Simulated assay, not measured.
Amino acid sequence: MKATRTAIPDVVVFEPKVWGDSRGFFFESYTKRVFDEAVGRDVSFMQDNHSRSVRGVLRGLHYQIRSPQGKLVRVTEGAVYDVAVDLRRSSPTFGRWVGEVLSAENKKQLWVPEGFGHGFLVLSESAEFLYKTTDYYAPEHERCVMWNDPQLGIDWLAHGFDGEPALSAKDGKGLLLKDAEVFA
């Protein structure tokens, strides 16, 4: 498994070594020892989540202000543009974001540490999205930063999607970063 730090060094892209032939393929999607070494600490996952969305759905930018969740995310069907935003006020990269196309084809995974907002836009006709979290879902602590906050300037449309994204009612009420509760 190849681990590559992004422009925000705490966010890491994982690319598995895939063995394939005419029968199909095999790869290790998670190995604790390799993962912990790459992120520089011992990480325990508490929950696995699985969602399916259609083209144009944008989910995010989500985070939990208490019981923060680190997320190891991947796509098993289709493709998404996945984004992590640093929401740690004391961080030198506060308010910056990184994005990565994750797909069933490239099999990449993205580590989004605690203290980050996370979201994705579905680029394919549909996508199945799987992720491990370091803490349990706590709806009372969930927050959302507006996906199109001009301060963040996330380029959601750079990867071939040219429509208006479909949002949940909750995501449509996201706050601007300047008004959002963030991490210390």
Results as ranks from 00 to 15, higher is better:
residue 69 Q to H: 08
residue 142 E to S: 12
residue 143 R to E: 04
residue 116 F to V: 12
residue 123 L to A: 06
residue 59 R to Y: 03
residue 165 P to D: 00
residue 13 V to P: 03
residue 30 Y to S: 06
residue 146 M to R: 07
residue 172 G to S: 11
residue 138 A to L: 10
residue 88 R to C: 14
residue 158 A to V: 14
residue 67 S to G: 08
residue 51 S to R: 10
residue 29 S to V: 03
residue 155 D to S: 14
residue 118 H to K: 01
residue 172 G to M: 07
residue 160 G to L: 13
residue 108 K to N: 01
residue 110 L to C: 01
residue 103 S to H: 01
residue 106 N to K: 06
residue 138 A to I: 12
residue 37 E to H: 03
residue 172 G to D: 11
residue 103 S to Q: 00
residue 60 G to W: 07
residue 102 L to M: 03
residue 153 G to C: 12
residue 53 S to F: 14
residue 99 G to E: 02
residue 119 G to T: 06
residue 19 W to Q: 10
residue 76 T to F: 02
residue 83 V to K: 00
residue 178 K to Y: 04
residue 88 R to W: 15
residue 38 A to M: 09
residue 166 A to E: 13
residue 43 V to L: 13
residue 135 D to N: 11
residue 108 K to T: 01
residue 7 A to Q: 07
residue 35 F to R: 11
residue 177 L to W: 06
residue 64 Q to F: 05
residue 62 H to C: 06
residue 53 S to N: 13
residue 152 L to A: 11
residue 42 D to N: 13
residue 156 W to K: 08
residue 29 S to D: 03
residue 169 A to E: 02
residue 42 D to S: 10
residue 175 L to A: 11
residue 51 S to I: 14
residue 77 E to C: 03
residue 113 P to C: 07
residue 122 V to Q: 07
residue 115 G to F: 05
residue 143 R to T: 05
residue 109 Q to V: 05
residue 43 V to Y: 08
residue 86 D to Y: 01
residue 159 H to T: 14
residue 178 K to Q: 06
residue 159 H to E: 12
residue 31 T to V: 09
residue 91 S to F: 02
residue 73 V to R: 03
residue 6 T to Y: 07
residue 30 Y to K: 09
residue 48 D to G: 10
residue 35 F to T: 09
residue 115 G to M: 07
residue 160 G to M: 05
residue 21 D to W: 11
residue 44 S to I: 15
residue 65 I to V: 09
residue 160 G to V: 15
residue 117 G to C: 08
residue 142 E to W: 08
residue 168 S to E: 13
residue 109 Q to R: 02
residue 88 R to K: 14
residue 174 G to A: 11
residue 64 Q to H: 15
residue 154 I to P: 04
residue 184 A to Q: 02
